[in-house]
Simulated scan of single mutants.
Amino acid sequence: MASDGLTRLGDGKYLLVTTFKRDGTAVPTPVWIARDGEALYFWTVTDSGKVKRIRNNGRVQLAECDFGGKPLGDTFEGQARILDADGSDRARSLIQSKYGLVGRITMLGSRLRRGSEGTIGVEITVDAPA
């Protein structure tokens, strides 16, 4: 079942990634997503709240969503982990490939604003429906 969910989540345009604060409060955020093998990848600002929350607790909930973060399907449980520099480069490359010209322009703008270390990749493995 997780594999079926992995395909649906990874093929969507946006993914709602819900991370959790130390007190258990859920914080949902829509992100661009790319799938490679048995994992999903996204990128974000290195010092963002979601990176801090994932470092504290890698448990996430995932759902297909629209641009504004409105869920469009089932919710799945998953585990997220912050990637090293090589893994982050791979995540950026996957996003650029999936989102084409818009993805490449967005990555370029991000690199110009924040430098190459201003963003970081995140890998997610999907466990099962929530």
Rank of each mutant, 00 (worst) to 15 (best):
A2H: 12
S3I: 12
S3T: 13
D4H: 14
G5M: 11
G5V: 09
G5K: 10
G5W: 07
T7Y: 09
R8H: 09
R8E: 14
L9N: 07
G10Y: 04
D11N: 15
K13E: 15
L15R: 01
V17T: 09
T18I: 08
T18W: 10
K21G: 07
K21L: 09
K21V: 02
K21Y: 03
R22M: 03
G24Y: 11
A26Q: 12
A26E: 14
P28Y: 07
T29P: 06
T29H: 02
V31G: 05
W32Q: 05
I33S: 07
I33N: 04
A34Q: 03
D36H: 15
D36W: 11
G37C: 10
E38M: 05
A39H: 14
L40Q: 06
Y41G: 02
Y41T: 01
Y41Q: 03
W43F: 09
T44H: 02
V45N: 06
V45F: 06
D47M: 06
D47T: 10
K50A: 05
K52D: 02
K52R: 15
R53L: 04
R53G: 01
I54Y: 03
I54W: 07
I54G: 01
R55T: 00
N57D: 15
R59W: 05
R59P: 01
V60M: 06
L62K: 01
E64Y: 01
E64C: 14
C65Y: 00
D66L: 08
F67E: 02
F67K: 14
K70W: 04
G73M: 13
G73T: 02
T75K: 07
F76W: 15
F76C: 07
G78I: 03
Q79V: 08
A80M: 08
A80V: 04
A80T: 02
A80H: 06
L83S: 04
L83V: 05
D86A: 15
D86K: 05
D86R: 08
S88F: 04
D89F: 00
D89S: 10
D89E: 13
R90Y: 10
A91V: 02
A91M: 09
R92W: 11
S93Y: 00
L94I: 06
Q96I: 10
Q96T: 08
Y99N: 05
V102Y: 12
G103K: 10
I105D: 00
T106W: 14
M107V: 08
L108M: 10
S110P: 00
R111L: 13
R111Y: 13
L112Y: 05
L112P: 00
L112R: 09
R114A: 11
G115V: 11
S116F: 13
G118R: 09
T119K: 01
I120H: 01
V122D: 06
V122H: 04
V122S: 07
V122A: 08
E123T: 01
E123Y: 02
I124F: 07
I124L: 08
T125S: 15
V126N: 05
P129E: 14
A130L: 14
A130P: 00
A130D: 10
A130H: 03
